[in-house]
Each structure stands twice: as C-alpha cells, then as structure tokens.
Design a binder for these strands. Structure first.
Lengths: 202, 202
DNA sequence: CCCCTTCGGTACCGATCGGTACGGATGTGC
DNA sequence: GCACATCCGTACCGATCGGTACCGAAGGGG
C-alpha cells in the first residue's frame, strides 16, 4: 500500500507551486529580500496576492521556502562536492561550483545566500540572521568534512579544519560578490584556481 | 591672504555637517541603502528631515556623500596600502586592513561598499551600480599597482596584474561578508594570511 | 444534489515610505 | 534697523509597502 498524498479536498490550485517558487527564487536572488516587493513577486510568479499568501504564508515564509528550494536545486553542487574523495577535490568542486552557479547565463548573478539579505532594516533582521545561519551551516559541513580528511591522513595533522572551511566560504562569498558586480565566469575561475593554490598539501 | 570660505550669509547651520555624515555612514553601513529609512537616518543624525534635505539633497545623494566620507576615512588604509614597497606588502596591507576595518569594535561589521547595496529593487539600481563602480575602482588601483610591480621586477613577468587585483578584492569582499556574519577578527586574520599564501613570489 | 473546503481575484486596510510647503527663527550686509 | 538669505521644525503630501476581507468559482464526500 502506498500512502498517497492526503485527500485534496476543495478547489484545486490552478498553478504549479514549485514553478511559482522557482520564479520567487529569481526575484529574491536579483533584488534581495527587502528589494523584492509583493508586486514584483506576484507578477513574476503569475499569481495574485491572496494566492501567494494562501500558498506560502507571508513574504518572509516565502523567502525561507525559496531559500530551501535554491539550496536543494541551484546549489546542490555543494552537497556533491562534500562527497569528493580528497579535501583538495572538495575545495575545488566547491569553488568551481560557486563560480558556475554565480555566473549562470539566464539567471541572476551572485548567490541568493549572500545578497538575499546581507544588511537590512530592523524589520528584516530575522531574514538576515537566517542567511547568516545558512552560510554558517555550509561552514559546519565543510569543517566536518575536513576533519574527516585530517583523520584519514588526507590533510596534515596540524591542519585546522575550521580555518580551512572558513577560508573556503570566504573565497566563495567573495566570488559571489564579484559575480554580482559583473565579473565574468572565466575571470572568476582563474580567481578560484589562484585561491586553491594555497591549499595545504601533504 | 587666505581665501576663506565664501561669505556664509543667512542663518548658520546648527549642526556639524561632517558629524551628521558620520552618523549617516553608520546607518547605511549597518542597514544598507534600502534598509535605512529616513527616520533611521534623521534620528541617528540628530536633525530633522528638511534639514537633511537642505544639507544633503536627498537620500541617494546622502548615500553617495556618506560613501565618499567612508572611503576617505575608515577605508583610508587602502590608499596607504598601495604605497607599500612590494606587491606582497600591498596585498598584506589590503587584507589586514580589510579585516581590521570590517571588525572594528563599536562600529558595524563588514564593509559599506559591499553591504550598502548588493542586491536592490529597481528604484535603487543606481546606488547598486555606484557601489559596483566603487569596488571596480579598487580593482583598477590594484591592477595599476601590480603592473608597476611587474615592470619593476617585483613580480614575475608572466603575472597577470588584473587577476591578482581581482583575487585580492574577491578575498576582501569575502572577508567583509564573513565579518558581517559575525566572524571574529582573529579568525579572519588567519583567513587573510591563508589567502596570502598563494601570492606569487619570484 | 447539497455541503464543505479550498481556490480564485478585486478591492481595500493601516502603516510606512521618500519628499516638501510653510511659517517662524537667526544670522550677515547695507 | 531693515532687507535678505538660509536655517529650523511641524505638519503634511501622494505613493507604495505588506497584508487581508470578501465573495464567487470549483472541486470532493455524503
């Protein structure tokens, strides 16, 4: 027996909720949480304002759901990068993936997790803090991965895994800012490779 | 004979315009251009709304003047760094100065030139572009400085000065983002030193 | 077939946004 | 001391903000 989706009573939704969420991601990504107005969002999502509120709660909840979808979709390279066999391969995959995701043709430049809400007014402080937590989560994953590498002898025993993780995210954040400023993919790939030049080797 | 300031006719201004500008810098720095409301600004500056408009034009002009004052004040380390004798000393001074300025106790964390307006709504696009130009100006200065270093034999002849400049600003931007996320000064100094480890040497 | 639930959109809410009209106050130049 | 220029702040402007009340439409369960 399958446990199907719970009985969908009432009038069915006339739009694809995931597709609408994808559109919202693009708006938040290019304009930031505060810069994205409900008119911007509803127009891009192709739905009315009350539909948005019924489906997603409010603007803040919509942002969180958009961030979640962004994480599982456009930044899924990150999870794959963690599975690389060596720490250097992890670092390379993270930075190359960052460059590619931040300079994807047809999509906004930069990274939603950085420019979504870096500095905000008081009302949006929770959103800003959520993005801080999002970035810290990435650091935590990298730290654990590099600790593994140290334990496995893939990195010198004296290595500080947290420092390496922080370094990697710092460069990734910088790449995101530069991408949002118009730097090209080839330029940023060179920058990424330069940053990887200081990776500790046995 | 001194050419004194032109005859100040009319009722004299009752507040120090530079001090008010310093307060505005702090507001824009911590909340960003869009997140800083006129009420935030006037309250922090200790002046009324019409006084602000008489003295500074409008919110956008005020931001540009605040950015200028920020550049000449809190980021003056950058101009000094360019005068360092070697390219590596320049790079070190830039990154260390970035870390210090971005984690100054009692001041907002991060960098006004990054978080002032990274992603904005349509109305603030000019401000965003102005900050892009601000960051590109830094890259241009660094590029010229590193070209000098190549010409002077301080860097290998095969070095790409623009790539080094872009790399440096990328790391600096990343440091600014991490500082705004709460990373500590000692942590970020280690990150900066790690980034300097890949600096090309003769 | 009717009830119930959820969806749809129009039209509205109070609050806040950036910006200004205006009248009183305070200085300099004649 | 009088005209003039600039400053001061109160009180206001239209526009836009995020959010919602309302009612007709569209489906499932009895």
């Amino acid at each position: 027996m399958f446990s199907t989706t719970p009985a969908p009573t009432g009038r069915p939704r006339a739009f694809d909720i995931d597709e609408a969420l994808d559109r919202a991601v693009l708006v938040f990504w290019s304009k930031g949480f505060e810069g994205a107005s409900l008119d911007d969002l509803t127009e891009a999502m192709g739905i009315s304002r009350p539909s948005l509120y019924r489906a997603f709660g409010n603007k803040e909840d919509l942002f969180y759901k958009a961030l979640e979808r962004y994480t599982e979709g456009l930044t899924s390279y990150f999870a794959r990068a963690l599975a690389e066999p060596t720490s250097e391969a992890v670092a390379t995959a993270v930075l190359h993936g960052t460059v590619e995701a931040a300079t994807m043709p047809g999509l906004p430049t930069g990274c939603l997790g950085v420019q979504g809400a870096l500095a905000t007014g008081d009302e949006s402080r929770q959103v800003r803090d959520a993005l801080i937590a999002w970035r810290e989560d990435g650091i935590a994953h990298l730290t654990r991965r590099f600790q593994q590498a140290v334990d496995a002898g893939d990195l010198p025993p004296s290595t500080d895994p947290h420092l390496l993780a922080l370094y990697l995210r710092t460069v990734a954040n910088g790449i995101a800012v530069q991408a949002a400023s118009g730097s090209s993919r080839p330029e940023l790939l060179q920058v990424a490779n330069l940053a990887l030049g200081s990776w500790p080797r046995l």
